[in-house]
């Protein structure tokens, strides 16, 4: 029981690390497209790890299904959104002028 709690804590901490990495990337990376990288990848992994940690702390099948649904939705939204945003940036739409 205690071991499980440590595992959950470790997973959530690892997830937090990726969220921090995503935000640091958003602030540090030089151009818009590179920032999108940080957003899609680091945040999805962070959310996955946090959700997994919560699941380990509270193992219930329906909770698991709901978390899975959330993760899938976030992933689809992030990937599609990133593609749409990147497309605008690559095609050089005039409104990106500051």
């Amino acid at each position: 029981m205690v071991a499980l709690h440590w595992l959950a804590a470790a997973l959530i901490l690892a997830g937090l690390l990726f969220f921090v990495a995503g935000t640091v990337g958003l602030l540090r990376l030089p151009d818009a497209l590179s920032r999108l990288h940080a957003l899609t990848k680091a945040d999805n992994l962070g959310l996955f790890l946090v959700a997994l940690g919560l699941l380990v702390a509270n193992p219930e099948p329906f909770f698991a299904l709901k978390l899975l649904l959330i993760w899938l939705l976030v992933m689809a939204a992030a990937a599609t959104g990133a593609h749409l945003i990147a497309k605008r940036a690559v095609r050089g739409d005039g409104e990106d002028a500051p």
Binding site: T23, L26, A32, R35, L39, V74, A77, G81, D96, A97
Partner: peptide, 16 residues
């Protein structure tokens, strides 16, 4: 500086 960056960051708000 661009609207692209702003929208991107708003998306981050959603995930976080």
């Amino acid at each position: 500086p661009t609207p692209t960056d702003r929208l991107m960051a708003a998306q981050l708000t959603g995930t976080t």
